[in-house]
């Protein structure tokens, strides 16, 4: 038998294809792999019944294992959170090999870091951030803490919709993974790193880290630096108490108002006023100059 020669690239492709789950007997067909993480892999699939593309997350774990419990929890949490900023779940099921999977809306778009490659406006970045806060605040209102907020877990859809993704280690009120460190360093609250109990303020910390990342860290305007510093306070009690409070402070900055997190000097206040009403000030100044010139020429003529 002549064996087909496979280059290293084709080998990589086939090795990936070989690990795709078998959906025989189910209404879904895998199209391609979207991503792979510790808990499972996410595939682009086709819902054969409705003829629409979906995203399917398949557990890496065997039935009954911890990973499967987490995937199940994630699906249930997403099903609870009906919000434009949170991906809806359509279905949950089991493969022939016993692995759990859930089906969700397929989001076409880019991750926040990819999207921001073409965005320079600070105001637009902050607008995205406020919408992330909206979704997170909604989850908090339903007793869910995300616990892994970071730029890679935020997606911007084709039509500008902002979605908070990957609720795999989210925690509902009363549940939790004490003694296990889960999350992403650099965006994780100190109490989360110490595997202590966490609440919504752990997400406020992560949001502060995302804000700092968005604004370019130390290069951020002082009020924004102060907002992220307050959100990222080591003590949870020193942070904004809710994602909404954090979002509101950012919105105040965006509107050109003073922010809660920063007491500004007279010079800063004057500068902010001048920036906010720059055009109006220029126009009034132009009018006054005209008037002075008019008075001068009128005097000279008479």
């Amino acid at each position: 038998m002549t064996v087909t020669f496979l280059s290293d690239d084709v080998m990589s492709r086939l090795q990936a294809v070989a690990t795709w789950p078998n959906f025989d007997g189910l209404r879904y067909t895998i199209i391609d792999e979207i991503g792979r993480g510790g808990m499972g892999a996410v595939y682009r699939g086709l819902d054969d019944v409705l003829g629409r593309e979906v995203a399917i997350k398949v557990s890496n774990g065997v039935p009954g294992a911890e990973l499967e419990r987490r995937l199940n929890d994630e699906a249930r949490i997403l099903a609870t959170l009906e919000h434009p900023g949170i991906v809806p779940v359509h279905d949950v099921g089991r493969l022939a090999d016993g692995r759990l999977f859930y089906v969700m809306k397929r989001v076409r778009g880019a991750t926040l870091p990819e999207h921001l490659a073409g965005v320079t406006s600070l105001s637009e970045k902050l607008g995205i951030f406020e919408r992330v806060c909206d979704a997170v605040n909604f989850a908090h209102a339903h007793g869910v803490v995300h616990r892994d907020l970071k730029p890679d877990n935020i997606m911007i859809g084709e039509f500008g919709e902002v979605l908070v993704m990957d609720w795999g280690i989210a925690q509902t009120a009363g549940s939790g993974d004490r003694d296990i460190v889960l999350g992403t360093r650099g965006f994780m609250a100190p109490e989360q790193e110490r595997a202590e109990s966490t609440d919504a303020r752990a997400d406020v910390y992560s949001l502060g880290a995302v804000l700092s990342w968005l604004c370019g860290g130390s290069g951020a305007p002082r009020p924004l630096g102060a907002i992220s510093a307050r959100a990222m306070a080591a003590e949870p009690s020193s942070r904004y108490s809710t994602a909404l409070a954090l979002s509101s402070d950012v919105a105040r900055f965006r509107a050109g108002h003073a922010v809660d997190a920063h007491r500004e000097s007279l010079l800063e206040r004057t500068g902010r006023f001048a920036r906010t009403y720059r055009t109006a000030i220029i126009l009034v100044a132009a009018y006054l100059v005209m008037r002075i010139l008019a008075a001068y020429f009128s005097g000279a003529r008479s």
Binding site: A280, L283, Y287, M290, A294, A295, F297
Partner: peptide, 19 residues
């Protein structure tokens, strides 16, 4: 008083247009 009236009057129109 053409210039003394028209120039500032135009700027006032600009201000109202902007606002």
């Amino acid at each position: 008083y053409y210039w003394e009236i028209v120039l500032p009057g135009s700027v006032l129109g600009l201000i109202v247009g902007y606002a």
